[in-house]
C-alpha cells in the first residue's frame, strides 16, 4: 500500500469576484502533490497564478471577493488529514507557522521594520511552542546560526534595515523553519537578491529540506532556479498546468511549446557565443480564455486551427509526465513527430 502524499492538491481553483464584471479565474483546476524531502517547482510568468496558489494553500487570501474550489488534503503531524481549503480560520492559524510555513519574495518589506529580528523569530516559537523569554531568545539565536547568520547574538537585537539583503532572507527563512514545518512554501525567495546570494539561499533551502525531510514548494518564474533544485516541476500558464514532470524528464524532453520556449530563453554558458537567445513571443496579456481554446495559442509557434477548438485535454507521456497540448514539440509515445 502506498502512503498518501503529504499534500495532495486536487483541482484547486481560485477566482476573484468583481462587482458587475466577469470574475477573474486566477487559478483553474490545478492538481499536484508534495512529499516529504522532495522539492516541487511551480514555474510560470507573473500572472500565471503561482503566488495565488501559495496564498490559497496558506489560507492567506482575503476573506471577501475570492472563491476557492477544489481540495488540498494535508496529512497532519498528529495523524489524520485535513483539507487546507476548508479548515476553519482558527485551525488554519494554528497550522500556519508550525506545520506549514512560507518564505516570501521581498525580504525587506516582509520584515517588520520596527521590531528587532530576534523578536520576530522568537514570536513564532512563543506562539506555537510556548517558549518564552530567555529560552525563546536562545532558540532564536540557534536558528539564526543555523541559517548561516554570523554573530547571531548581536543580530538578534538588530533591526531589518541593519541587515543586508541576503541576511534578511536568511532571517525570514529562520522564522519559517522555526517550528520545523513539514511543508515549506517559498514564493520567489531569490528574486530580490543578487546572483551570488541567490545561489547561497537556494543551497540553504535545499540543505534544510534534506536534513529535516521537509516538503518544499518552490514558486518561481525562473526555470534556471529550479533546474538544479527541484525533483519535480509543474509549469503553469494562465492559471492552468500546461506541463508537469520529474526534473530530468522535463529538461530532457520539454513537450509543451511554452516549456520549450522557457528553456530556450535561458542563457547557457555552453552555447556558442554568437547564438542569440530565443524569447517567448508576446506577453501573458495575450492569453485567451481556456474555454475558447489553448490560452498559449496566440504566442505559440506551433499554432494550428484546432488549437482554438476548446481547451486542450491533459495528456500523459511516460511515467508522470503530463502535458496539455495538441501539437507537442516532443512526440508522445506511439505518435509520429510533427517535426517542423
Amino acid at each position: 500500500m502506498t502512503r498518501s502524499p503529504l499534500l495532495d492538491v486536487d483541482e484547486l481553483s481560485v477566482a476573484f469576484t468583481r462587482r458587475r464584471r466577469r470574475d477573474v479565474q486566477a487559478v483553474d483546476r490545478i492538481s499536484f502533490s508534495l512529499d516529504e524531502g522532495r522539492i516541487t517547482g511551480l514555474v510560470g510568468e507573473s500572472g500565471c497564478g503561482k503566488s495565488v496558489t501559495s496564498l490559497a494553500l496558506m489560507g492567506l487570501l482575503p476573506a471577501r471577493g475570492v472563491r476557492v474550489g477544489g481540495t488540498a488534503r494535508f496529512r497532519l503531524g498528529g495523524g489524520g488529514e485535513a483539507d487546507l481549503l476548508a479548515l476553519p480560520p482558527a485551525r488554519m492559524r494554528d497550522l500556519r507557522g508550525s506545520e506549514i510555513a512560507m518564505v516570501f519574495q521581498d525580504p525587506l518589506s516582509s520584515l517588520n521594520p520596527v521590531v528587532p529580528i530576534g523578536r520576530q523569530v522568537a514570536e513564532v516559537l512563543t506562539r506555537h511552542r510556548g517558549v518564552k523569554g530567555a529560552a525563546a531568545r536562545d532558540q532564536a539565536a540557534e536558528l539564526l546560526d543555523r541559517v548561516g547568520i554570523p554573530d547571531p547574538g548581536r543580530r538578534l537585537r538588530e533591526y531589518p534595515h541593519e541587515l543586508s539583503g541576503g541576511m534578511r532572507q536568511r532571517a525570514l527563512i529562520a522564522m519559517a523553519v522555526a517550528c520545523r514545518p513539514r511543508l515549506l512554501i517559498a514564493d520567489e525567495p531569490t528574486t530580490a537578491l543578487d546572483v551570488t546570494i541567490q545561489a547561497q539561499i537556494l543551497e540553504l533551502l535545499s540543505g534544510l529540506v534534506a536534513e529535516e525531510g521537509t516538503a518544499l514548494l518552490m514558486i518561481t518564474h525562473d526555470l534556471g532556479v529550479v533546474a538544479g533544485l527541484c525533483d519535480e516541476i509543474n509549469v503553469l500558464y494562465s492559471g492552468r498546468t500546461v506541463e508537469g514532470a520529474e526534473r530530468h524528464e522535463l529538461f530532457a524532453a520539454p513537450t509543451h511549446p511554452y516549456t520549450a520556449g522557457l528553456l530556450g530563453s535561458i542563457p547557457r554558458l555552453d552555447a556558442p557565443r554568437d547564438e542569440p537567445l530565443t524569447p517567448v513571443r508576446g506577453t501573458v496579456d495575450d492569453a485567451i480564455a481556456w474555454d475558447d481554446g489553448c490560452a498559449f495559442a496566440p504566442r505559440c509557434d506551433r499554432f494550428a486551427d484546432d488549437c482554438l477548438g476548446g481547451p486542450p485535454p491533459m495528456r500523459e507521456r511516460g511515467a508522470g509526465h503530463r502535458f496539455r497540448c495538441l501539437h507537442p514539440t516532443e512526440p508522445a509515445p506511439g505518435e509520429e513527430s510533427e517535426g517542423r
Binding site: M58, L60, R93, D94, L95, R96, G97, S98, A101, M102, F104, D106, S109, S110, L111, N112, P113, V114, V115, E123, V124, R127, H128, L172, M175, A176
Partner: peptide, 29 residues
C-alpha cells in the same frame, strides 16, 4: 496592506499580537 503583516499572518500569530506589535506599532508613527 504591507508585506510584513502578511508575514505575521503566515506565522500564525494571534490576532492580538498582529494588531499591537505589527499593525499599530507601525501605524502609530
Amino acid at each position: 496592506g504591507e508585506d510584513y503583516v502578511r508575514t505575521a499572518e503566515a506565522k500564525g500569530l494571534h490576532r492580538g499580537t498582529i494588531r499591537t506589535r505589527h499593525v499599530l506599532r507601525n501605524a502609530m508613527l
